[in-house]
Design a protein around this nucleic acid. Sequence first.
DNA 1: CTGAAAGCGCTTACAG
DNA 2: CTGAAAGCGCTTACAG
Lengths: 358, 358
Amino acid sequence: MPEQPQVTLDDVAQAAGVSPATASRVLNGATQVRADLRDRVLEAAGRLAYTPNPHARALARASSPAVGVICHDIGDPYFAGIARGVMRTAAEEGLQVILGSTFREREREVAYVSMMRGQRVRAILLIGSGFEDRPWQKAMQGELAPYIAAGGRVAAVSRHQGLRVDTVLPENREGAAALAGALLALGHRDFAVLTGPASLTTVVDRLGGFKNALAEAGVTLAPDQIVEGAFTRDGGYEAATELLRRGLRATCVFALTDVMAVGALTALREHGLAVPADVSLAGFDDIPIVVDLTPPLTTFRLPLEDLGRRVMAMALQPARARSRTDRVLGEVVLRESTAPPARPAGWSPAPPAERISQ
Amino acid sequence: MPEQPQVTLDDVAQAAGVSPATASRVLNGATQVRADLRDRVLEAAGRLAYTPNPHARALARASSPAVGVICHDIGDPYFAGIARGVMRTAAEEGLQVILGSTFREREREVAYVSMMRGQRVRAILLIGSGFEDRPWQKAMQGELAPYIAAGGRVAAVSRHQGLRVDTVLPENREGAAALAGALLALGHRDFAVLTGPASLTTVVDRLGGFKNALAEAGVTLAPDQIVEGAFTRDGGYEAATELLRRGLRATCVFALTDVMAVGALTALREHGLAVPADVSLAGFDDIPIVVDLTPPLTTFRLPLEDLGRRVMAMALQPARARSRTDRVLGEVVLRESTAPPARPAGWSPAPPAERISQ
DNA sequence: CTGAAAGCGCTTACAG
DNA sequence: CTGAAAGCGCTTACAG
């Protein structure tokens, strides 16, 4: 490994016959430098293929052009979609992105924040759901507070209880309620829900919104028709399987995420149930793939890439006295995976099911 | 923004009543330090919540614990899957990952390498397909060579022509050939191919392998049955639509990636064609979702996450005199999207279609 | 406008 | 085993 000495600012300065200070100024776009000096510096830098050492720069400037992005699983289409938006804005702004993927272990999230804080990133983006977990919130806030106090920026997607951070808040509660409304309008009265870990704020919000809307319509959700699974494709598959084992009494199944719905669809199919003929199925998020399922999935659309762009944009804005919340609208998208129930139980006509915008 | 002064090594040393050198040694796990001093340092560091400044460290050590990872689109399940594997190994090794997503603009790939090189990352991982593009290869090699000469490590997934880099090589050519064999064994003689940009080495390899295998079986592929599209879901949708516009004469359609196959499946369905009753469809990669399609997709499975782990592992090994290539096996996975042709044209029985392993 | 000098926070030979 | 000192490569007041 023939370690090659790196070309340094001093080399450039020397080659150009100026001081390092002047070379630095030129290379940083200072305009108050004599034209001929500037040219010599630029020429020398080009000839020597000079690349500034970002660590030296970060050290001297006490700031770096990097942002940290933490998600639960970069292999998950939901996070991949948001990350895509983040990368877009990062590229436009010339920022580096340091990625953290926790594999859904929440302690790793704290560890990543600690690492990125040490790294002196300009901003930290939390794009995974928050946790309803007091000790975790304490630990996280313990990392975040000093970082923010030192001038760091933090922005999150979804509700992060207990953390004082700027937030891009997708309409989880309202969206689930709107979806419930649309499914009720279709004539459903018997629902099952495939839910995720109860400690996720996203689960709380979506499940809460859905249940509330049902309750307001006088519809109750039987406890045994709520099945918890992992927030993954396999989690959806297994939750649906468990639901069938318990005995499916619902005419419509709501999976809290599209990813879970995808697994559920296969489980239903494997058990000989046709969607929507035998049972309707709805998801949440509108990840890219669900329009290609058979049948295409009814869902609540979240603009994933836009979520990513927004959270990045928010992090790049200066901090305010109190943390801000940007609500992001979504919309119910009715597709073929939902239809009026085959066996409406004492059902009276409902208003037509249109696309309900929020 | 009340900029808080950061706790420095000197603070720790002072609090512990030792020199910065000693504090540094303790914090870096040196064993040859008197126990009581070590304890005092550790205590002070803990009490002050000291975090070393990685930039200072990188500057002093002339190396940083970061690796750069460049893909074409982090929103694409293929790359998201590989990235997942990369993140796994990175976490295990305590490495930071700087992510680059080029949005399929090849110049951005060079720009990212340049940036990461400047960043003094330990290694650069190219996980996107290579390009059959001489000027691009020159530009890329121009960035890579000095980086490597300076001790940097580079590893790639897929064939990167013109770049002297260690490679994790999925069996694109052999895989496509094996898939062709399996489809021939099913009785197909009339094929169509939905291909991607011809400048991608992955396209060249998969298309070449597929065609070759057909040729060896005495089957030719009509030029008008080969349609090029973008390497995306929409590219697959559009290519399939164009194929139908031209007149589908094939009994089996091969999409060069699962992502394209997903779009193609929807296009076929929208045009009233049943898969596999009217036409068989096969993809490549075995991204997580395709098992949940209706019908589940026949494909050539690549162990995506493993690809990511391997390329990372390779980059962490010391460089060798000549670049290495790790071939990664895959396997044909026959699912319900392929079946014997509905109208076998002068067809003689073929050997039974089993799962053909490579 | 330009340069000498100090400083960013850490590591590591080099003496003791 | 421990510490004083130099150095990593850059930036930025501070003088001129």
